[in-house]
């Protein structure tokens, strides 16, 4: 190791060649004195980055609070269209995913490679579940009135179903859709003139959160690939997977705040 000329490889990268797992071959960037220092710096940098994410959402929460204060009735009405059961399920899904993420980091730290990979994959699948629930059971019916056939909410509207598609997999409920943000709001049974604003806040907050879920899943997929092909993470080097985990916990944490604000306060 000491014979390697690190300057051909100035950024802290994986030294090519050899048959050992990548994490054993990893050398810190040439401007670091030790790998520990590099790891500390990456963690500090990542915490700062997480602070910026929190502040980004803080702006949204601030907008939510002000609008809720100005138009309490519209927000109560809007909130009543959200099904707390789907929200709770999604919360559970994300909490589980946070657990698998943390466990995965632990596994890599113990050099249990295949266990770590499995947990990473599980986290990814949980993320996917979250998005699926969000889009198929929450966004789609509210925007278009199309329900998936086994959505329990559909039972309230059986007599209103006016169309079916994909062999009965999707049912359209007349008049249910149109709960779109702002100017595109066209829900006919709205009881408060400011309800469009509620949907604007709802879609902005959950939409930007969903975008973060997607970014987090991309990072997880990238870690998984590196772990699978190169055994990139192990007891002495796990920076990337650790920071991905931090990011994922933040995504989870933001949802923990969004969930009661949007679903539970009426």
């Amino acid at each position: 190791m000491t014979t390697l000329d690190t300057r051909s490889n100035p950024l802290g990268a994986d030294v090519q060649g050899g048959t050992e797992p990548l994490w054993k071959r990893y050398l810190p960037g040439h401007h670091w004195r030790t790998a520990d220092e590099e790891f500390d710096a990456c963690t500090l940098g990542f915490w700062l980055f997480l602070a910026t994410e929190v502040l980004l959402f803080a702006g949204l929460f601030c907008g939510y609070t002000i609008m809720r204060f100005k138009f309490p009735q519209a927000f109560a009405n809007g909130s009543s269209y959200l099904d707390w059961r789907w929200g709770t399920l999604n919360t559970v899904v994300l909490l589980l995913s946070s657990y698998t993420m943390a466990a995965s980091i632990r596994a890599f730290q113990m050099d249990r490679q295949s266990h770590g990979r499995r947990l990473l994959a599980a986290t990814f699948v949980f993320g996917l579940c979250f998005l699926l629930i969000k889009f198929t059971f929450e966004y789609t019916p509210k925007l278009s009135g199309w329900f998936i056939a086994f959505d329990p909410a559909l039972s309230h509207y059986t007599e209103l179903v006016d169309n079916k598609a994909l062999g009965g997999l999707f049912h359209h409920v007349a008049g249910y859709g149109g709960k779109a943000p702002g100017q595109f709001f066209s829900y006919a049974f709205s009881e408060d003139p400011w309800e469009p604003l509620w949907w604007s806040i709802y879609y902005c907050a959950t939409g930007i959160h969903a975008l973060h879920v997607i970014i987090g899943m991309t990072l997880i997929a990238w870690c998984f690939r590196r772990a699978l092909f190169f055994k990139a993470y192990g007891p002495s080097h796990y920076t990337m997977v650790e920071n991905t985990g931090l990011y994922w916990h933040l995504v989870d944490l933001i949802w923990i705040f969004l969930f009661p604000l949007l679903y539970l306060i009426h």
């Binding site: 980004l56 959402f57 609008m67 702002g182 100017q183 469009p196 604007s200 930007i208």
Partner: peptide, 26 residues
């Protein structure tokens, strides 16, 4: 980050007319 979310909402406002800053939509 705060200007980030503000400008993003402004873009949404122009593209999707979400109305958070638009007095005619509340």
């Amino acid at each position: 980050p705060v200007i980030g979310i503000t400008l993003l909402l402004l873009v949404f406002e122009r593209m999707f007319k979400i109305g958070i800053f638009d007095p005619s939509l509340g």
